[in-house]
Design a protein around this nucleic acid. Structure first.
Lengths: 232, 232
DNA sequence: GTCCACAAGATTGTATACGAATTTGGCGCA
DNA sequence: TGCGCCAAATTCGTATACAATCTTGTGGAC
């Protein structure tokens, strides 16, 4: 059917990785909403690959809890429950403050510069009104910190938690609370810049608490999880 | 080729899950050594499934870092580096003590009973000389604690870290240190039994430190990572 | 008019087939 | 004898085909 002229981007990844990354980014940027069906044929046609590689990508995303696979039903963008949302942020509360501490101890000038670039891009995206991209960059900021802490294992966990947080925000964000969180990131950068572990740990701790309290986890998701919740 | 008479065990899982679980258990119990090649056709024939489902299982295990996929080379049981070993135990040190605390706060009598059963089985396996199974059960003990803490997200992370720890132990365990760790588990159970969070957290913290220091992470893995390390 | 049974359509689950990359064995040449 | 190159064999990567399952639409009975 398809000709597979040449995978545009010179690729080393195993093919399905590209599809998974593209889908993950779309989820990050809230272009794919929780609950959306991901038809294998449809996705395959979009990327010009067969169902085989689409399935591999979906399985990877399922393992990252970004999509949910229902047997004989298909793949859907995940819809974290209130319970899961709390758990994700509890896990982040366990991992990130002390990781930020380590990062602050080790941060070099170049590291701080990279973080600053993330922030600048985030601000630019916000000014451009692209809140989706801003959120994505905001997540990358957290992952970058774990990378600076030189903890790839923990960084992987945080990356997964950040991705799931993006879904949680899509579901439970209450629009009232404004101005995202850029100030928290600015303060964190400053702490890294002066290699202040105590401040970094404390800032990250509070930053996560703020993030959590800016969500509305008391009742059902603001975007309906199922038709029963949406109507009736 | 194969007839697929009927999937022996009445199965609800997606097929590849069974293969992945079986392989994971084999790795846990040290019946599959780090570095071992996992040929797709071979595995498929053993379980009576096609390469499609074997590949799905291998991809899942790769995501759990239990196997390593090398492009156009195949799947191998992972061989954690010294660096990775340290990172895994640092991650566990971040997650498990406070999870043990939560578990101690919430532990009911039935929970303690379940843990006791794990310990008993572990001791039995040790007496039977089946150290592989004992190690597997020892890991389950840790995962069970996270389950008692009612933190499925963190429990998933710990499960993955425990699995990787099994590989690390296979590579870096120094046989000198004896009597495993059963006493630490006994003490933990007692702390859960009297709902003593402080003790549980502290015991878990030290237990992990003991585990880490019982490894020999100063030089190359005791089981050769590659032929270059083995010979020469 | 409503409900249930059944058939048609659609979508996933699995197996197989074919092409591509890598490894291995052997031959020729220095 | 030792090195390098080429071909055969093996194994992975991807596409496609078929079977199983679920959803949906229709018709009949009450």
């Amino acid at each position: 059917m398809q000709v597979m002229v040449e995978h545009s981007g010179g690729g080393s990844g195993s093919g399905s990785g590209k599809v998974a990354d593209s889908l993950a980014t779309a989820i990050h940027e809230h272009r794919l909403s929780p609950g959306m069906k991901l038809n294998e044929d449809e996705v395959g046609e979009i990327y010009g690959v067969s169902r085989t590689v689409v399935r591999a990508a979906l399985q990877q995303l399922a393992h990252e809890r970004l999509v949910e696979l229902k047997r004989n039903r298909g793949a859907f963008v995940a819809q974290p429950s209130v319970r899961e949302a709390r758990e994700v942020f509890e896990a982040r509360a366990l991992l990130e403050p002390r990781t930020a501490r380590s990062a602050a101890e080790r941060a070099k000038a170049t590291d701080v510069k990279v973080l600053q670039k993330h922030i600048d891009a985030e601000h630019a995206a916000l000014r451009a009104g692209d809140t989706g991209r801003a959120l994505h960059l905001s997540g990358m900021f957290h992952i970058e910190i774990a990378r600076i802490a030189d903890q790839t294992t923990i960084a992987d966990f945080i990356a997964q938690l950040v991705a799931r947080s993006s879904l949680i925000i899509a579901l439970y964000w209450q629009r009232r609370t404004a101005l995202c969180e850029s100030h928290a990131h600015d303060a964190l950068i400053k702490a890294f810049g002066r290699n202040d572990p105590d401040a970094a740990e404390e800032l990250m701790k509070h930053h996560l608490v703020d993030l959590l309290t800016s969500l509305d986890l008391r009742d059902q998701p603001s975007v309906a999880k199922s038709l029963k919740d949406a109507l009736k």
